[in-house]
């Protein structure tokens, strides 16, 4: 067996011409021709396997990217002002397909234009992910609105149990400075001044989201969102 294959491999050109095999059909399929002009011989099994592999890989890639984008729950056409994001088009007939998918999948009823605008923060002003075990200072001014509420949610957008039982603050109950600005301390344990309670028993992995809902705000009814003042979110301490 070994002898035969060696003799075949070492067969010289003279020997080949002597038995006329280089002019026969089998010589066309030999390894000596460049790949580009070598005639094509079909390999049905190999072709099928290649197509199957391409289809499987493409499905995996397509479905997983779609899943990741939808699961992030962040519509793509966000309006970003400081650490806050707003999605004024989401939940309307002009929404992009991604936010339509996100909103219908979560059965979310959006705050419609005539009612108000919701601003969501998942990061602080320094760009760090919000952490429910830390203490945050939310200070500044909000875009003008008749009423606004600030709510602390977990990373999945659900309300959490807090020490006093409430997880939100309302603009009408706020202590303000003379110029109308305010300072809110968001923390687990009670603080003096404006205190937004965070989850009583939370791990860093639970995530934290602040939602600022502006009711009857001119920013939703045509006025541009650029240039409005939004509160800053600063991390003041972590355990």
């Amino acid at each position: 067996m070994t002898d035969q294959s060696v003799s075949h491999a070492t067969r010289g050109p003279d020997q080949g011409r002597a038995d006329g095999s280089s002019f026969s059909e089998s010589a066309w399929y030999g390894e000596k021709l460049p790949r580009a002009i070598r005639p094509y011989r079909s390999h049905p099994v190999r072709t099928l396997a290649t197509i199957a592999l391409v289809v499987v890989l493409a499905s995996l890639l397509g479905i997983s990217t779609a899943y990741l984008l939808i699961e992030r729950e962040q519509p793509l056409n966000a309006v970003t002002i400081g650490p806050w994001h707003a999605y004024p088009k989401a939940g309307t007939a002009d929404a992009d397909p991604y936010s339509v998918a996100i909103y219908t999948r979560g059965a979310v009823i959006p705050l419609a234009n005539g009612e108000g605008l919701a601003l969501v923060a998942r990061e602080d002003s320094a760009g760090q992910q919000l952490d429910p075990t830390c203490i945050y200072r939310i200070a500044g001014q909000t875009p003008s609105a008749r009423l606004w509420t600030l709510t602390a949610l977990d990373g999945n957008g659900h309300l959490v149990e807090t020490l006093p039982g409430r997880g939100n603050l309302v603009s009408s109950d706020l202590l303000r400075a003379q110029d109308g600005s305010f300072q809110i301390t968001a923390a687990r344990n009670p603080h003096s001044g404006n205190w937004l309670p965070l989850a009583a028993a939370a791990k860093a992995s639970d995530g934290l989201r602040f939602v600022l809902r502006l009711y009857d705000a001119p920013v939703t009814t045509g006025a541009a969102l650029d240039g409005v003042s939004v509160p800053l979110i600063e991390r003041t301490g972590c355990p």
């Binding site: 391409v54 289809v55 890989l57 493409a58 499905s59 890639l61 397509g62 479905i63 990217t65 779609a66 899943y67 984008l69 939808i70 397909p97 991604y98 339509v100 998918a101 219908t104 999948r105 059965a107």
Partner: peptide, 20 residues
Amino acid sequence: IFCLAAIIHILVVLSIPHNV
């Protein structure tokens, strides 16, 4: 793979609202 993946991605995103 990329072309097919893009088509599948778009189909999945568009089909979600009809299948919730």
